[in-house]
Design a protein around this nucleic acid. Sequence first.
DNA 1: AATTGTGAATTGATTCACAGCT
DNA 2: AGCTGTGAATCAATTCACAATT
Lengths: 215, 215
Amino acid sequence: MLDSQKKTERNDIPRKTIYRLSVYLRCLARLKDNQMETVSSEALAKVAGVKPTQLRKDLAYLGHFGTRGLGYDVLELSRKISEELGTSRLQPVVLIGVGNLGRALLSYRGFEKEGFEIVAAFDVDESPPQKQTARPVLDMRELPEYVRKHHVRMAILSVPAAAAQEVTNQLVDYGIMGILNFSPIVLDVPESVMVNNVNLAIELENLSYFIHPRH
Amino acid sequence: MLDSQKKTERNDIPRKTIYRLSVYLRCLARLKDNQMETVSSEALAKVAGVKPTQLRKDLAYLGHFGTRGLGYDVLELSRKISEELGTSRLQPVVLIGVGNLGRALLSYRGFEKEGFEIVAAFDVDESPPQKQTARPVLDMRELPEYVRKHHVRMAILSVPAAAAQEVTNQLVDYGIMGILNFSPIVLDVPESVMVNNVNLAIELENLSYFIHPRH
DNA sequence: AATTGTGAATTGATTCACAGCT
DNA sequence: AGCTGTGAATCAATTCACAATT
């Protein structure tokens, strides 16, 4: 993943730690499925792909609730991380831009079991390939009303580069606080708004760099 | 973006710099479109969302070819970065796992203009929702033959968590050197194989953390 | 006069090493 | 005995400050 555009700003816990907490949470879920009740920092670090010390440092930000000589209680730790991340509540998300990638993301239903739901999609022009999208595609003009009414605070942005900044300005106006940006430009937003960038082309480019024999 | 599972290992240039070079390249492309011939570190840094010093430090890894008092030649700099990243040649990529997300990625044609092409998709079971995928979905058993024949070195992995490690082992066996991993587990691969992780749920979770008022 | 290139300083993240619990 | 929690040490990345160049 690309780094966020913003420094941590928030509070004490470093951004990279927050990322890793999400990873730990997913690992713990799998341990739960396998009826593990307790896990050592060594074992959990192994499946999470980090060093045991790093795991312990990360968890230390949440307080201390491991048992020395024994490890961590899987359920308790899950609960604690999930509470810190605020993963309990279901978050409504709007998707802006129903082109190629937008349609792809819309048809991907994998967010739901992770606590997010794409409640609606918007585009400047609702007519186009309206074919089999799982959700209704609304006109951009309905966005402000929708956002207000449904208390939407997060948006997935998948519009073409040329439109991205303009649409972002609107989103910010309407009160969106977090943007998952798939467009290939760096968005200019106020301090208070958070942007995470995902750029699949860059990920592939990066892989290709490390794979290929230096010229 | 999530960090890669691997440290730089490769050569001198730090991984984060490589990422940023990709970003600079895209910014330069836009400058080119606007007929800019020359650009200062300050201006380029601005659109790339970094500090001018960082930009200069990053570019210094490629040698020095800015002109003091003037800035960088847009075309020359593009060429140089693109050469370093190896973006010239078109890379064939296979996609493994044609479930929800896999199908979404398949229908997204945005890679091509960036130098990558999903040449084929594979699944354990080629029958299922074969509906309107842009490309043929082949049976996993044809994968080794295909990879060998078409000199494929990179794969996009979008299989369910339960199958991910098993499939990865196969990919590694068949000679795949780089994996863009959309599955939510940390893959275990040999040193020589590179994995980049993309996890949309984690990106959203992360946004939501920074947005929401601390409890 | 403007702007790059870069050593030195700073800031941040990771890892070590071990003291402290259970 | 085993494993967590953490201050100190190390390592890496960023930023500063300014000399060098056009």
